[in-house]
Design a binder for these strands. Structure first.
Lengths: 188, 188
DNA sequence: CTTGTTTATGCAACTCGTTGCATAGAAGGA
DNA sequence: TCCTTCTATGCAACGAGTTGCATAAACAAG
């Protein structure tokens, strides 16, 4: 049940509306967590009724009004409690790996297009992360005064970058394997 | 809804009971997919009533009887259909990353133990995968006669190995960052 | 002036996944 | 003898996540 906590962290970094949160979850928070606006609105409503977060109606011109949420003391306490309890290391769920093993009972060559598509997606994501890194984590860096929040955001982003690089290299391995099998299949 | 397909692939590789599948999902299939026995039994029941798989009651001595499942023609067709339709590249959900960013609003040093624990888990998993690789994918390798199924299982395993190596390196990066912040916090 | 896009919020229904519990036979150790 | 462990299957309830749909105001393009 970490969506609650992911939202709390995001609101602590910067208060905002459900809609804004949903967009953050497509960007920076999306490096390590995804959520649709439905989930977000539902969780916000529950956390509000539990007193974890405060709402402020913000009238806007040129667009619909919004509800800006910020973290209240009980929410902060709930986050702190969660931070101090251990969590299980996650297990992976990789649909593509199922397909790859399934290809043994079908035509391995048919998967090549699909793997290439994934390769492109991950290449794009890597470029996106690297652009974000250049934008947010290079520059002055006032020595002797490192901001803990920045440092922690950066190390999480480095994790996303490492993940994408690893995935891209693996997909190239997969492609080479599929090409080899398709060739063997053809010349048999 | 790839659990269905993961089970079909596993049953094609080797027919077996729900219990056996659950154990496979803790081992080799667990490289890229996890499932509890509850999920597996439920899906097996549904797939059986849909005619995707066949059952055979196997009486055993010295242990309870079991139901051995194998893939029927409609199941194979359903798998083939799924293999040919595109899937979305997965997004990550990493609780630990939420905690790391959350640590900016708490004591970063308090996370060190937790991260060390994850580091140990992933180190163990890597050792386990490498042992599996030595066991299953080194040896004769009759030249000119590569088994497609073996090759594909191996490339998936290499993916698991790459993932664990990447994660271990990242966790070391995280630890170094947390130590740095804790030191700065202490001498402030 | 209608259509499509962006901002903004939400309900309802459904599927997927987890947790707790229950049963049951056989083996092995205290 | 009792207790635990391993094999083997399953129900019930709940919580998490997805999908489809609905509303509504403002603006831009055709």
């Amino acid at each position: 049940m970490a969506l609650d906590h992911a939202i709390l962290v995001s609101l602590l970094e910067q208060p905002g509306s459900g809609y804004e949160l949903a967009r953050r979850f497509e960007r920076s928070i999306g490096y390590f967590w995804t959520a649709t606006h439905q989930q977000i609105y539902r969780v916000l409503k529950r956390m509000e009724s539990d007193g974890w977060i405060d709402v402020r109606e913000v009238p806007q011109q040129a667009r619909p009004d919004k509800k800006e949420y910020s973290v209240a003391a009980p929410g902060r306490a709930a986050l702190a409690a969660w931070l101090h309890e251990p969590i299980e290391p996650e297990s992976v769920r990789h649909d593509l790996a199922v397909k790859i093993r399934g290809a043994a009972f079908d035509d391995p060559g048919a998967l090549i297009r699909e793997v290439e598509r994934h390769h492109r997606t991950h290449t794009d994501r890597l470029a996106h992360y690297l652009a974000g890194e250049r934008r947010d984590f290079t520059g002055p860096d006032a020595p002797g005064e490192p901001d803990a929040g920045q440092e922690l955001q950066h190390v999480v982003l480095r994790g996303g970058i490492a993940y994408e690089r690893m995935t891209i290299a693996w997909l190239e391995d997969v492609l080479a394997t599929l090409h080899r099998l398709a060739a063997a299949h053809g010349t048999r």
